[in-house]
Computed example of a mutant assay.
Amino acid sequence: MPSENPGYLSKLPGLAYVGLVLTPLFWAGNAVVARGTVDAIPPLSMAFWRWVIALAILLPFGLPGIWRHRQIIRQRLGSMLALATFSVGAFNSLLYLAANTTTATNIALINATIPIFVALMSWLLLGDRTRPIQALGIALAVTGIVTVVARGDLAVLTGLQAQPGDLIMVAAVFSWGLFSVLLRRQAVPLPALTFLTTQILLGVLVILPFYLTDLLAFSGGFELSGATLAPLLYFAIFPGILAYAFWNHGVHAIGPSRAAIFMYLTPVFASILAGIFLGETLGRFHVIGGLLILSGLILATRAGRTALADRKPG
């Protein structure tokens, strides 16, 4: 469980490395489980109930901090609502929508470009200086995304035949880039647990009208059973609460640049899990696109961008 004062954990770097390996595994599992359950649980139901369950788990621990820091929350409510909209509200909702029409492997590959989108948005909106090596990294990663979206066939792009899920996933990482830039521009001075609990609470309120519209007018919801409850619990606990705690502990213990390297494991884990559980196979375009994305990420992160220290939800 996240702590209001995690300083004592910084003395446990071994635990940090274990957590940083588990974090991309949980993020990969988020894509694989979502892809495997989209026929049983509508995407907006998936997003809404994931965060409701996470909130129910966190609230007993986070509520005292919310009360203690209520003045700051009230003063920064507009900023926190915007942050919650782009992160808790939009990011996973879009990811689960993407799972309807694309593979878990594609989701993970595109998701791995989040540092690139953060750097790009920081350059466009905050005026951060971009070094030539970072610009090259961004260009390579974007080329990798285009390769994955086009499935290695230029005719897919020129004929506007790209899978909707791939484009929705690009919108998801774009949303996370906006969140990260806003987080830097409008930093909210709250302890980690208080911030997370407040973000989830506001994010649930953001998703609620979309969930109700989908429930009443489109999907009709889903039948609660062991087969549908298990993935929701996984979404809430593993890529949600635990991945957040492990990621922030890792960044605190070994630094953002070294922690960021572990993000590269997400598509590796996803391709393995998707092959085992979903029968997905890797195409040549996955390998080429993945190598371009990996090369771009390495070049961009070698430039020492502080944006990689931003909080990451799964």
Score class of each variant (00 low, 15 high):
L97G: 09
R50N: 05
A135L: 06
G144M: 11
F61T: 01
G65P: 07
I66S: 08
L25G: 05
V32S: 03
Y96C: 07
R129I: 05
F26M: 08
T130D: 05
I116Q: 00
D128P: 11
S79K: 03
T113D: 04
L97M: 15
F26T: 01
S93L: 10
L77A: 09
H69P: 10
L124D: 00
R131L: 07
T37N: 03
T130L: 13
A98K: 04
W49I: 10
L59Y: 06
F117K: 08
W27I: 14
S79M: 04
L63H: 02
F86Q: 03
Y17F: 14
W51L: 07
V142A: 12
S45D: 06
I110C: 03
G137L: 00
T37K: 04
L95M: 15
V52W: 00
N106W: 12
I116E: 01
V21L: 08
P115I: 13
G19Y: 15
Q75E: 15
A135F: 00
R129E: 02
S122Q: 03
G29D: 09
A47F: 07
S93V: 04
A99Q: 12
W51E: 01
V146N: 02
L126R: 11
H69G: 00
L81Y: 08
V32T: 01
I133H: 09
V149I: 15
I57K: 02
G78H: 12
L136H: 07
P43N: 07
L58D: 05
T147F: 09
I110Y: 08
G65A: 03
I41M: 08
V18Y: 09
G137V: 06
A54D: 10
G36N: 13
A28L: 10
N100Y: 12
N100E: 10
N106Q: 01
I145G: 00
M80Y: 01
L55F: 05
A84Y: 04
G144R: 06
W123V: 01
I116R: 01
L15D: 02
V21N: 00
Y17Q: 09
W49P: 09
R70L: 04
L81N: 12
I107K: 14
G29H: 13
L22M: 12
A34M: 04
M46F: 13
F61Y: 13
V146T: 15
S79E: 06
S93G: 14
T113V: 12
R76V: 04
G65E: 03
W51S: 05
S79C: 00
F26A: 10
P42C: 08
T147Q: 07
F48Q: 06
V21D: 07
Q75D: 14
W49G: 10
L109H: 05
V146A: 05
T113N: 05
T147C: 11
N106H: 15
P42R: 11
A56E: 04
T85Y: 09
L97A: 12
R74I: 09
A139G: 09
T130A: 03
P24F: 15
L25W: 10
R76W: 08
N92P: 06
R129Y: 00
L97H: 13
V118Q: 06
I66G: 03
I41S: 02
A28F: 06
W27E: 02
D128R: 01
L83I: 07
G62H: 04
R129D: 00
V32Q: 11
I133L: 10
A54F: 11
T37Y: 14
Q75N: 14
R131D: 02
A54K: 09
P115S: 03
L25S: 12
